[in-house]
Nucleic acid binder design. Structure first.
Lengths: 228, 228
DNA sequence: TGCCACTTGTGTACGATGTTCACATACGGG
DNA sequence: CCCGTATGTGAACATCGTACACAAGTGGCA
């Protein structure tokens, strides 16, 4: 019953604005509403996941009337999708950061292996650190299918799916993965890591201590390496 | 803005009932409303997943006023949870059926292995055949944590999680799985199969031809067997 | 420069949902 | 038999997504 929700009634022009966030706007045009809404969506999703992305809340945060959103998105689903893509891009960045933090290695095989594991580790780290965003990125029915769309890319211009593919190619090049095992391997690896992420976020592994979660995650990646 | 909330107009007592399904009821008491609501929830979920489980729709289908639900469930979430448990029980039954359909074998190791694979195959078969129910069972944040609760059990009185555990024990007993690999193995196997199910239902593997999906699923189980 | 069409945001309204409160009805034990 | 209690009803509210008509700026073309 207490839905904290408050207002948007009472147009209150003039200075004193409510706790809507940043409704400071004096120009009639917003200027960059589309991105403002996506940003607001990300903020909402960060705490509360997909169902927390509520049109009216996002427009409120952007300091704009609810229907203004319809000038930029066909409906709530379209906004959700855009936020989802943005969240995927963050996943990609986390993976890239994990790879970038890798200690330099001489052995190209060891390097390829480390880069592969970093993809999975980054995925799992993101899931733990930003469960709300993770759910938006991958728990939204049907949006996972766009994991290879360009606007889900990170700094290197690669989507999470493409990063995984590249890492697998590296394993093949260095002889760590037989070539005939390569086809479809991304789905095997993705399945295992994603499933584990779900168990971790809102499954029976929820509440696991971060270090234990990390160890368990490494076991999953071990299993993948052995099983691919 | 007065929200003119105005609904449930048209109480429509008497004969002509709408397309509500089975609103035929003349006694004041329903008799078994709680189960009727769960059943209605299952029907709604079957096509549309968790978000299709709408309190008012369920009560409508049960031929009862919306608030009547609150005599049996604290809120919508509680109903959703009950439906989720019921769906899990169906998963357990599918697994049991898959095991029961196994051809008899002399070799106990082969039998244990087949029983293990049947667990995964049943899980995936259910996901494909009843994606809506599957989502209710396992996609509802937090409900997966109750996968071992008793009311999620199938005909043999075992939950999906327990069936998996028993199958893994069988692998250990027949020497197919080293004892030191047993701890935590259920989460490895579950992760991989569940992740694949998600990719299949609303991920990039959506729309895969059923036979192809089955083959891919067997590949996932192969990976698990090798990787455990 | 002046006008006009187009883009973007506003106001108001509607139907639907979850939930609450006061009230009505029947069942079952004293 | 009678009354307490479990169960269902009715009306109301806040909130949500969305549609329609209108207002306010913006940019191109005369």
């Amino acid at each position: 019953m207490p839905a904290t929700g408050n207002d948007s009634r009472n147009a209150d022009r003039g200075g004193s604005e409510k706790r809507t966030g940043k409704p400071k706007r004096d120009t009639y045009r917003h200027g960059d509403l589309r991105n403002a809404l996506i940003e607001a969506g990300l903020a909402l999703a960060r705490q509360g996941g997909p169902e927390a992305i509520v049109l009216r809340a996002a427009t409120r945060q952007a300091g704009v009337a609810p229907n203004a959103a319809y000038r930029h998105f066909a409906d709530r689903g379209a906004l959700l999708h855009a936020v989802s893509q943005a969240a995927m891009a963050e996943v990609a960045r986390t993976m890239e950061a994990e790879q970038a933090a890798l200690p330099p290695t001489e052995d190209p095989a060891a390097a390829a292996r480390a880069r592969f594991r970093a993809v999975g580790t980054g995925y799992l780290r993101f899931a733990q650190e930003e469960p709300g965003l993770f759910r938006v990125a991958f728990h939204v029915p049907g949006d996972m299918a766009h994991a290879a769309d360009d606007d889900a890319a990170g700094l290197t211009g690669r989507t999470p799916f493409e990063l995984l593919g590249a890492a697998l190619d590296g394993l093949v090049e260095t002889g760590l993965l037989p070539e005939d095992r390569r086809p479809g391997a991304e789905f095997l690896a993705w399945s295992a890591v994603h499933g584990f992420a779900v168990l971790l976020i809102d499954g029976p592994l929820r509440g696991l201590h971060p270090t234990q979660a990390h160890d368990a995650g490494q076991h999953v990646i071990d299993m993948i390496e052995r099983g691919l």
